[in-house]
């Protein structure tokens, strides 16, 4: 399964996942607490410095790509505040949003899925009486396993459709794909039972 962890190995990869997440939580809290454009600007410089310092240019460019969904919002906010002639407030909003998302993405890009799952298992320990950690891990594994299976099924259905129709299936595929998910759920439940159940 493709994850958002960066293949560019940075020193940040070697830090403990729990520590990174804790630092991120504090940093994000501070960003939403302050209303000073200067402080937020320094925050952004700090995050940008971490991207460049830890991973170099290629890594930083990848980080910039992950911010792409933000640009429409940045544009809207910028235009809005331009119109209101309140640029300082606009700068605060944009800086806070970009910095918070960039910092969070940085943790995602430098933390392996397995390390994240370990942290999650720790966090979920108090829930153990309702949600045994093994069952949570099993649920996560099942989703990762069945995303490619289900999308393969969707592709097969689309081909079967195209084999008998000149037009693309579009939404008509959703019903059969949902049925495939339901059927798979039944057979997987059986396979799970065959190997001792979900405990």
């Amino acid at each position: 399964m493709l994850t958002l962890t960066s293949p560019v190995e940075t020193p940040l990869h070697r830090l403990r996942a729990g520590g990174k997440l804790g630092a991120l939580a504090l940093f994000t809290f501070a960003l939403f607490w302050t209303h000073s454009a200067l402080v937020l600007g320094l925050g952004l410089i700090l995050v940008a410095g971490l991207y460049l310092g830890a991973g170099g240019l290629r890594f930083a460019r990848h980080g910039l790509q992950m911010l792409r969904p933000l640009w429409p919002f940045v544009a809207v906010v910028a235009l809005w505040h331009l119109w209101l002639e309140d640029l300082a407030m606009g700068a605060v909003v944009v800086l806070r949003m970009v910095t918070a998302v960039a910092a969070a993405n940085l943790v995602t890009m430098t933390t392996r899925l397995s390390d994240m799952i370990t942290v999650l298992e720790g966090l979920a320990r108090p829930l153990a009486p309702v949600l045994p950690p093994r069952r949570l891990a099993l649920a996560i594994a099942l989703v990762i396993r069945f995303i490619p299976v289900l999308s393969g099924r969707a592709e097969q259905l689309a081909q079967a459709w195209r084999a008998r129709s000149g037009r693309p299936p579009r939404w008509r595929l959703f019903g059969p794909v949902a049925l495939a998910a339901l059927d798979d759920a039944e057979t997987v439940a059986e396979a799970l039972r065959a190997r001792g159940g979900a405990g």
């Binding site: 649920a139 099942l142 989703v143 998910a181 759920a185 799970l192």
Partner: peptide, 8 residues
Amino acid sequence: LTHIALFA
């Protein structure tokens, strides 16, 4: 469990 996982 499997229904929840498959629908996720």
